[in-house]
């Protein structure tokens, strides 16, 4: 495999390392896309998640439709629709903007679910105590429910960030200059596919692995906290 004419031949690696700047460019683009898409996803996720727990039935219904729509259609389709559909409406967006929008909204729907279930995990008694003290619904959310829900939400939210980073690779389909597109276009000229995609995988790993670890740690800490509470209450 690593022999002179194998897919991982040494000279192919050499060629790749000579062109390292190209890959750094793709890496940077993926980071940029991820950061902006994540900000958008968080904004959407938090707003939709909170509204999904509202007492207003219509509001809950609208949020449900939004979440179900984006969770049950492929991201790829959504990207294509934005890319090919919007120009018909006279809206022409850059590939980067489309990437941020599509990935941000798609993961916003998933994050909304994470936020919703986090809020629902807080007992009704907390709202009631807050109301009985004269807090409004939004004050109760802000000072009492959300700070508690945050502990439950953070681990799955972090895993959503990991998924989001990996899913920015879909932008390669419409020629966004991300890691995958870079690897593909670089290797299509010289056919050195194998090392190019190993490096591409490695670059995603560098971004995602620390986040996955952090999520595991937060989850463990939350579990320990819960167990600690039970111990203390039994004592």
């Amino acid at each position: 495999m690593f022999s002179a004419n194998g897919p991982f031949a040494w000279f192919k690696w050499e060629a790749l390392f000579l062109d390292w700047k190209v890959f750094v460019g793709g890496f940077g683009y993926t980071i940029l896309l991820s950061v902006f898409a994540l900000v958008l996803a968080l904004v959407i996720g938090i707003i939709v998640g909170i509204c999904s727990t509202s007492q207003t039935k219509i509001l809950r219904g609208i949020m449900r439709v939004f979440v179900e729509f984006f969770q049950n259609t492929p991201l790829l389709v959504q990207i294509f629709v934005l890319y090919n559909g919007l120009p018909f409406l006279g809206i022409v967006l850059s590939v980067t903007t489309i990437g941020i929008l599509a990935v941000g909204v798609y993961h916003g729907a998933y994050i909304a679910e994470v936020v919703r279930s986090g809020i629902s995990s807080i007992t009704k008694g907390q709202f009631e105590a807050a109301y009985s003290q004269g807090f409004t619904y939004w004050q109760a959310m802000r000072y009492i429910v959300l700070p508690q829900a945050k502990r439950v939400i953070m681990p799955p939210l972090t895993m959503q960030a990991v998924n989001l980073i990996k899913n920015t690779s879909m932008i390669a389909i419409i020629s966004g200059a991300d890691i995958i597109f870079t690897a593909k276009s670089w290797s299509s000229t010289n056919m050195y596919y194998a090392p190019a995609f190993v490096v591409a995988g490695l670059l995603y790993f560098i971004l995602c692995f620390p986040l996955t670890r952090a999520a595991k740690k937060m989850e463990l800490r939350a579990q320990e906290q819960a167990a600690g509470h039970v111990r203390e209450q039994a004592a």
């Binding site: 009631e128 105590a129 009985s132 003290q133 004269g134 508690q148």
Partner: peptide, 15 residues
Amino acid sequence: RQNVAMVFQSFNLYP
């Protein structure tokens, strides 16, 4: 409600 406090069976303190 600010004048009518309530004490619950399950305490409902803010943990």
